[in-house]
């Protein structure tokens, strides 16, 4: 009887890396569409309140946005290199790249924290009297700004946690040069977070 359970359990966890990757991509599409809904809202309001959006976007610091863009792009690089490293059987290097990725993610969050606190201390946050006295277009711009970058930051946080777990998996050889699909999938997630930011950056910081 135990043999039956064993064989069945084994059957259930049979490995299908391609299947796992399909699942991950499908999940990424839901994330994409989730943000897509907000991009849609952004597009509609930008169409309606274009001038106010231009006005409001001047209140954001392009420097913060630019730095964060570069940080995320670099983290994507180290993420991708971490996968190449483990596949080339250099575990140490892979761990180093992954640690760098996590470090960049942290840097992104620190930067975000300073950016948001600057906004908060100048009285701009959802529901603040300062903001409510502004024209409607500006209220909506900042509404979208906080919600979209906020949700993105939440994804960065989740990504950090996932990458941390991957780091320990790497360390304990759960992930190795033969079985690296988990790392690859985490990487896919991380790159998607990057792609979202690639669009958020010009939409909020650059377009005047």
């Amino acid at each position: 009887m135990n043999q039956l359970v064993e064989s069945v359990v084994h059957e259930h966890v049979h490995r299908d890396d391609v299947g796992a990757k399909i699942g991950m991509w499908l999940f990424l599409f839901t994330e994409l569409i989730l943000f897509g809904g907000m991009f849609l809202a952004y597009a509609v309001y930008r169409y309606q309140y274009g001038d106010f959006f231009a006005l409001a976007s001047k209140k954001l610091d392009v420097f913060f946005g630019l730095i964060n863009t570069l940080i995320l792009l670099t983290s994507s690089l180290t993420m991708a290199m971490s996968i190449t490293a483990i596949r080339r059987e250099s575990k140490k290097l892979s761990m180093l790249f992954l640690a760098l990725t996590i470090f960049f993610a942290l840097l992104f969050m620190v930067n975000k924290y300073f950016e948001w606190s600057a906004k908060f201390s100048s009285g701009i946050f959802p529901g603040s009297t300062e903001l409510l006295n502004q024209p409607k277009g500006i209220i909506i711009y900042f509404g979208l700004y906080f919600v979209m970058t906020g949700l993105h930051a939440l994804h960065v946080l989740i990504g950090m946690v996932i990458l941390l777990v991957m780091f320990f998996y790497l360390k304990s050889d759960v992930i190795n040069s033969d079985y690296y699909i988990m790392l690859e999938n985490s990487g896919l997630y991380w790159h998607l977070v990057d792609i979202i930011w690639i669009f958020l950056f010009p939409l909020f910081y650059l377009i005047h």
Binding site: P126, G127, I139, F142, F146, V147
Partner: peptide, 8 residues
């Protein structure tokens, strides 16, 4: 919207 009143 209900929590924070972001205006969206």
């Amino acid at each position: 919207e209900r929590w924070f009143g972001v205006g969206i």
